[in-house]
């Protein structure tokens, strides 16, 4: 038994030695919780931070908050636009409206939303309709990277850091 313990300790020492030699700068996945990321909800109006694409329907102007959702503003009086609310939709980039239904993307899904009595309802969700738009399957630069671990969630981005023996590269 003692021998086994010694051998294990030796192995660990060896590993840590070799580890130090293989420190590289590369990318590690940033994980997100899928249900949290693809959830949509109606929230109170909020400040525009990084305004995106716009769509107008009737007296209502819809402006994407890039990556976060959609601002709804009443522009019946263009001199005094009134913010009515905010639809939280992670990954939002696109918006269109027909018959009061709001078509947008929730991450890579196409979602059709309806607001009724101040409640947001998902009329339809088409998974991965925006498939190739924003899926960060690989880091932004070639080189070594930390392999994604699916048990930790889905990859929503990459951050540069010092990696120890990264097993993946491209």
């Amino acid at each position: 038994m003692k021998n086994v313990t010694l051998m294990l300790m030796g192995t660990l020492l060896l590993l840590s030695c070799s580890n130090r030699k293989n420190e590289v700068t590369g990318y590690a996945p940033v994980y997100g919780d899928l249900s949290e990321m693809t959830g949509v909800s109606l929230e109170p109006a909020r400040t525009v931070e990084n305004g995106g694409k716009v769509y107008v329907w009737g007296d209502l102007l819809y402006q994407v908050e890039t990556g976060k959702g959609i601002h709804i503003t009443d522009i019946a009086d263009p001199a005094a636009p009134v913010q009515k609310g905010f639809i939280k939709a992670g990954g939002a980039q696109e918006v269109a409206v027909k018959n009061g239904l709001i078509y947008t993307n929730s991450q890579n899904d196409l979602v059709i939303l309806k607001i009724e009595n101040n409640k947001l309802q998902v009329v339809k969700r088409l998974p991965a309709a925006f498939g190739q738009l924003s899926s960060p399957a690989l880091p932004p630069e070639r080189g070594p990277f930390e392999c994604p671990d699916r048990s930790k969630g889905i990859v929503i981005g990459w951050q540069k850091k010092t990696l120890i023996n990264p097993a993946c590269s491209y």
């Binding site: 694409k53 716009v54 769509y55 107008v56 329907w57 009737g58 980039q93 696109e94 918006v95 269109a96 409206v97 027909k98 018959n99 078509y103 993307n105 196409l110 088409l126 309709a129 925006f130 498939g131 190739q132 738009l133």
Partner: peptide, 28 residues
């Protein structure tokens, strides 16, 4: 169906929604 801008990737015309990704046009 209101009106969108010139930089949109998604548009509605009549009863159809058109979506462009990097290489394809999808008709819904």
């Amino acid at each position: 169906s209101g009106k969108g801008g010139s930089t949109a990737r998604m548009t509605i015309s009549g009863n159809y929604l058109y979506l462009v990704d990097h290489s394809k046009l999808h008709t819904y």
